[in-house]
């Protein structure tokens, strides 16, 4: 009899503690989630860019989600240079065909994958971009070729709304 009683008591305490813990966890979540992007930030997730004035061999830098996006209208030499590279020579192998669906246009986040600096245009050993912070060299397809960065510059989701307008995001 007394043993049964003890067991019931233990169960009661366990249940109370467990229910209490669930509540505590539920209270913590809003305090964490409030730091995630809010509804107004999420609503600004896409931006449209007019690229009609961009001539071959030039780069337009626009701000998207608080980060620079490079829109490069590439020359034929740059495209050829990017496409003839041997996959074995790449640190992060990606085909240029996959990065730039329309070969003339390269759209990517202008953020070095090392520690987040903005690389400089038309610099570096591979005629692409060069990050001044820690010396990462990117080629004309924005792929990492030399230096500490581990990955190619990221290509965001984008589409041509019409011949002159790119929608990023």
């Amino acid at each position: 009899m007394s043993e049964k009683k003890t067991k019931r008591r233990d169960f009661l305490f366990t249940a109370t503690t467990a229910v209490g813990a669930v509540g505590a966890a539920a209270v913590v979540w809003p305090m964490i989630d409030q730091m995630n992007p809010d509804a107004s930030v999420k609503a600004l997730a896409s931006t449209e860019v007019d690229v009609s004035a961009l001539t071959p061999g030039n780069t337009l830098t626009v701000l998207w989600r608080g980060k620079p996006v490079f829109i490069r209208r590439r020359t034929q030499e740059e495209i050829d240079e990017a496409r003839k590279v041997n996959m074995e020579d790449l640190i992060h192998p990606e085909k240029d065909e996959d990065r730039a669906k329309n070969p003339e246009w390269l759209v990517m986040l202008g953020v070095c994958t090392h520690l987040g600096c903005v690389p400089l245009n038309d610099k570096g050993d591979y005629n692409g971009w060069f990050c001044p912070c820690h010396g990462s060299h990117y080629d004309t397809s924005g792929r990492i070729r030399k230096g500490p960065a581990p990955l190619n510059m990221e290509v965001p989701k984008y589409e041509f709304v019409n011949a002159n307008t790119i929608k990023i995001g």
Binding site: A15, T16, V19, G20, G23, A26
Partner: peptide, 10 residues
């Protein structure tokens, strides 16, 4: 509802 259940348990 949760608070009432926990209150009863406590």
């Amino acid at each position: 509802v949760y608070l009432i259940i926990l209150t009863i348990l406590v």
